[in-house]
Simulated assay, not measured.
Amino acid sequence: MDKIKGVKFSKNMAKILIPLLIAVAIGAIWYLKSSNKTPIVIDDNHSFDLYVTDSLDIEKLKAYGLPIMIDFGADTCIPCTEMAPVLKQLNQELRGKVIIKFVDVWKYQSLAEGYPISVIPTQIFFDKDGKPYTPKDPEASQMQMYSSKDTKEHAFTTHEGGMTKEQILSVFKEMGVE
């Protein structure tokens, strides 16, 4: 028998105690990871990349639990090119706090299907719960709110035309982003 600080341990006791300690350590690690929602781990599958070129999996993006802005525009549209550096800067600065996407609707028309886009640029916003953003004052923020024809449920919140950095940050701030 071994003696550790005055306590006698048998081999049988060690066979029980070691797996128990391992299980407690695994449980503690799981608890800490699941209870702490921040920081968001940014994956390598391009979910946080600004430019969308192949598919726009909105359900996957909503699963991150972050506010989302999708800007539908074109590389050759003047207001869109004016917004491009702002989107790039905010995507880098707010990475892990929000998701910002840009879709060139002239190059990738199919990615805009199902969204209420009549002019470019048009931005669509979702809150951290994956629901369409509901602005406090839609008129003042120049937001349009769309409902589903079938269910009458709020389906989209959009802004048509260019947005400044300050306008975008104001929307994100209203959604709880610091």
Rank of each mutant, 00 (worst) to 15 (best):
M1I: 14
D2W: 07
D2R: 14
F9V: 11
S10H: 10
K11I: 12
N12M: 10
N12R: 05
A14D: 14
L17R: 04
I18F: 05
P19L: 00
L20C: 02
I22Q: 02
A23G: 04
A23E: 12
V24A: 15
A25I: 11
I26T: 04
G27I: 08
A28Q: 06
A28M: 08
K33R: 13
S34N: 15
N36S: 15
T38H: 04
P39N: 02
I42H: 02
D43I: 00
D44E: 14
N45K: 05
D49K: 14
Y51Q: 12
D54M: 05
D54L: 03
D57Y: 04
D57H: 14
K62C: 04
G65E: 07
P67L: 04
F72T: 14
T76K: 00
C77Y: 00
C80E: 11
C80S: 14
T81V: 15
A84D: 13
A84Y: 12
V86C: 07
L87W: 05
L94K: 08
L94A: 08
R95E: 13
I99M: 03
I100D: 03
K101L: 00
K107E: 06
S110I: 06
S110A: 11
L111R: 01
E113K: 12
Y115W: 06
S118N: 09
V119L: 12
P121L: 09
Q123L: 03
K131A: 10
P132L: 00
P138D: 12
E139P: 02
A140T: 07
S141E: 03
S141L: 13
T157S: 15
T164V: 09
Q167L: 01
I168G: 02
F172C: 00
F172A: 09
M175E: 13
G176S: 09
G176Y: 04
E178H: 02
